[in-house]
Structures are given as structure tokens and as C-alpha cells.
Amino acid sequence: MILPRVVSAEWRKTVTLPASWTGAAVALLGSLLITMLNAYAVHADPGGRAFVAPLEIAFTAMPLGTVGATVIGVSVFSSEYTNDRRITTSLAAVPGRVLTLAAKAIVVVLFIAVVAAVTMPLTIGAARLVIGETVSVPEAVARCLGATLFWILSGLIALAITVFTRSGVVPLVVLIVNSSLVSFSLLLSKISSLGFWLPDMAGRRLFGGVQATEGGLGTVPGALVMAAWTVLLLAAATAVFNRRDA
């Protein structure tokens, strides 16, 4: 089998790339920092109206993980097109475009899964430690799995979009703004129900818990819609990558 070998090569490329660790650090340290700040605010006023359960506190910080996943997804591809044009070496080594992109997608999935597996228990643990409430393990596990899926799909969408642009700048700016400051699909959902069908709005119930915005798709249909977007974008990216000169 040639795929495991190519995945192994892509994995090595990714873990030796500083941008990958920037993405991991944003997800881990960012989530942890926000959680701690919010948890201390609750801790300071346990009887107050601001009381929120540890899980809710931890999951409020999860959009930062989406930012981290986006950085990882973008940089896995954009790193091929810096001044030194590593893409020529990559495609000389592995001429199959589908194989190359498949290996990159697998690495994005694995890397984000590892980041999620470290970040989420730590974040929930920190919130629990500060606030002192107990956490329902089954609920925590279900929500962590859902959020991990959301991060992974976000990372793959970022990867696919970067295939079109080659440079990482535009996808990074657009996707980070979208997942941290203003969600374009959230804005769209205010004026048209079409907004609920865009990837991030469709998948948002994967985080579980109370939603700030009512309406839209349920957890499972939403996840399927987000996954369908991911598959569609990756398929289009593969077609473009396959036809385009390196």
C-alpha cells in the first residue's frame, strides 16, 4: 500500500511545521485561557445570575479550537506554496494528485483529533476545578465528540479552500473572522433560512447545550449537511488540483 507511506510523509511535514503548532497552541491555550477567565468570573459569584455549569463554560471557549483547526487546515496546504515552492518536491515525490490531497486530508483529521483529545478534557477539567460542580461524563463525552467532529470538518473545509487559493492569507483571514468574530452564515440566517444550511451554522449543534440562536437544523441533520459541504469542497479541490499545473 502506498497511502500509509504518503500519509506518514505528510504527517512528518506537518509536525515539523511551526504553523501547525501555532494552530494547536491557539486551540489549546486559547480555549484554556477563555475557560479560566469565565470560570473565575463564575467562581467569584457562585450564587449570582451569572452561574453557568462547567461544561457550558468549557464549551463557550470552543470556537477558539475552530480557529486552531482552521490554521492547521490552511497551513498544511499553503506551506507548499511559500517562496521555496516545496510543491515541486512534493509532487516529484508523489505524482498522484488525488493521493497527495487524500494524505493531507487524513493528516488534518488526525492532527486535529489529537489536539482535540488534549484540549477538551483539559478545558473541562479546568472549568470543573475552578467552579467545583460535577460534570456528567456521558454528556461531556458526547459533546466532546461532537465538537471534535466540528473542528475536523472546519479544518478540512479550510484545507479545501486553500487548494483553490494556494496562498494561505485570504482563507485564514476570512475563516478566522467567520469563526471567531462575525459568522457570515449567522448574519445570513437572520434574513434568510438559507443561512442555516451553510456549514458552520448547520454544524453548530454539534457543540451541544443551549444555543444562542434558535432555529435551523437539528444535531444529526446539521452534522450531515456540514459533512456534505466538506465532501463537496474536497471533491472540487481535488478536481482543481488534478487539472492545474503545479
Binding site: 507511506r5 504518503v6 506518514s8 510523509a9 505528510e10 512528518r12 511535514k13 515539523t16 511545521l17 511551526p18 506551506s79 511559500t82 517562496n83 521555496d84 515552492r85 516545496r86 515541486t88 518536491t89 516529484a92 515525490a93 508523489v94 505524482p95
Partner: peptide, 30 residues
């Protein structure tokens, strides 16, 4: 392909943040 054809197209063809050894190791593995 690298076992049949070795090629060099201008410059290192490597990411600037890698070491020489780090770069060659992923190429070898592929």
C-alpha cells in the same frame, strides 16, 4: 519515482522552517 528519477528544479524545494535532515526525511519516507 525518486528511485528512478532524481530531480532538482531551482533552489532547495524545501520549506524554510525545516532543517536539511527534516526535509530529506519526509522525502525519503514518501
Amino acid at each position: 519515482p525518486l528511485r528512478t528519477v532524481g530531480s532538482m528544479l531551482g533552489g532547495s524545494g524545501a520549506h524554510r522552517s525545516h532543517t536539511a535532515r527534516g526535509h530529506l526525511r519526509w522525502v525519503a519516507r514518501s
